[in-house]
């Protein structure tokens, strides 16, 4: 699967749930390429903007769409990566502010 195919597949699944791709399609395709890189590396599509531990159970929280997407889109109109956004974020009705990292640092540091 290439990034364009992934784009269409995910768009169809996510838009009905109220999660839209950032309208900057070039950036979106770069992020989807990152997902495909991680799929090849780890066997699962972990968030391209976060460090994966190569352990599916450990990284379950950051398998895209991550568990932080819902609170981030609710609060900022965008997920951490600016991949999934709300309609209002795309329309410019919300400021495109920095979305802080919600993943706990102990998860980022990885298992011992």
């Amino acid at each position: 699967m290439n990034a364009e195919e992934l784009y269409e597949m995910l768009r169809k699944a996510q838009e009905p749930q109220g999660y839209f791709f950032n309208q900057d399609k070039i950036k979106v395709l770069e992020l989807l390429e990152g997902l495909l890189v991680n799929k090849a590396r780890y066997g699962y599509m972990s968030c391209p903007c976060r460090l994966a531990a190569a352990d599916r159970d450990w990284d379950r929280d950051i398998i895209c769409p991550c568990i932080y997407r819902e609170p981030d889109v609710a609060q900022y109109g965008s997920c951490f990566c600016n991949l999934y956004v709300s309609r209002q974020w795309n329309d410019g009705a919300l400021p495109h502010t920095y979305v802080p990292e919600r993943r706990p640092v102990e998860k980022i540091l990885g298992p011992d």
């Binding site: 770069e30 390429e33 990152g34 391209p48 903007c49 460090l51 990566c81 600016n82 991949l83």
Partner: peptide
């Protein structure tokens, strides 16, 4: 940075 991260890029 991360090689796959858009903000890093």
């Amino acid at each position: 940075a991360l090689s796959t991260c858009i903000h890093c890029k």
